[in-house]
Design a binder for these strands. Sequence first.
DNA 1: GTAGTCATGTAAGAGGTTACATGATTAG
DNA 2: CTAATCATGTAACCTCTTACATGACTAC
Lengths: 208, 208
Amino acid sequence: MSLRHALLAVLTAEPMTGYDLVKQFDGSVAYVWSAPNSQIYPELRRMERDGLLDVRVLPRGDRAEKRMYAINDAGLAELHRWLRDPTTYAAERDPYRLRAAHFEFSTYEDARQQLTAHVRHFTNALNNWEQLLSDVRNRRVPLLRRRLEERPEAEHEAIVAFRLFAFQGEVDKAKFEIAWAERGLTMIDDLERRNVPLWGAGEAGQAG
Amino acid sequence: MSLRHALLAVLTAEPMTGYDLVKQFDGSVAYVWSAPNSQIYPELRRMERDGLLDVRVLPRGDRAEKRMYAINDAGLAELHRWLRDPTTYAAERDPYRLRAAHFEFSTYEDARQQLTAHVRHFTNALNNWEQLLSDVRNRRVPLLRRRLEERPEAEHEAIVAFRLFAFQGEVDKAKFEIAWAERGLTMIDDLERRNVPLWGAGEAGQAG
DNA sequence: GTAGTCATGTAAGAGGTTACATGATTAG
DNA sequence: CTAATCATGTAACCTCTTACATGACTAC
């Protein structure tokens, strides 16, 4: 139930509306945990029902209303509990490695396409991550700034350090994916140059 | 819809019952894609309905029956399509990095616990992976052996090479997770030695 | 006879995706 | 007046988890 904890964590910075949270989950938060508004609004209602959030219903303009959510003591306790309880590790389910393990049913051309797209995707991710890392280092992330304003100076170093640690992990993960795909491309070139045959798409794939 | 494609891929080795497939997904296949029997049996029925599998209903003993599934041309075509079509990359959702980014709400002791458990989990995974890697190199994996028997010698090198490529990726991923967590442990030791304070669990976490 | 394995499912619920739906407010 | 943004949802569907359920066959 990580969405709930991601929401609690964001709300420790300051009270927000669902709309504000949706924007956070489209922005910097999305790099670790993304969620669409169709998931966020109902979850906020459930968290309110479960007593983790306090809500103030505020007017907007003459007719409309908005709901301002704030984390309360029960919400903070839940956040602490999440960080204390042992992680349960999900069963392995890796679509990229699953696919690559079966490139024999593909062609060299298609396999190359897959891996170059992989490199492209994670190169792009890497750039975003490195930008975020530099923004965190320079305290240029709005959410982080507001969080730091709430806490005493002495804590700032740890708050920033943990974020850098997590985001550096994402950077390294992207680098790993790029290096892996590039090793695959080298391997494919080698196999193809030596005319090692594949099952390919030709043999029995015409039906259906 | 990767479960479907994982099932198709396994069935290229030889026809199997649902029970056989369940065992595969508890064994070597589980290292890339795991699935419980409650997911496998209904999916096989749907794949049969969609014309991707041929089924022979065989007697077992006097009273009971079993269903032997075989991939057909439509199933092979679907497998080729899966390998040809561009991958859609899922939105980022990384529970480990999400948690680590918020260790400020924890204590040094609890954060250390989390990271040592992380090291333990992925060290164990790494051992399993390296064993599998060595088994693939020596053709000691039953499913792989049967697959190779079905295909001409000339293809064997590529079949094995793609599996090694994929499984080496999992090995490297486990190594990355271990290295990441160990960097975190070093960082935590450093912060604690220098008495950098955390929000911790003490300040307002008693409620709930 | 009984324990282990073979064999096949159902059901409730959590979490996530995609698409649709509605309307108010504000800046130009 | 019109476009962008603010604001909040619903609904259908898919995937996966957890737990339960049933019974036949086989080796001892």
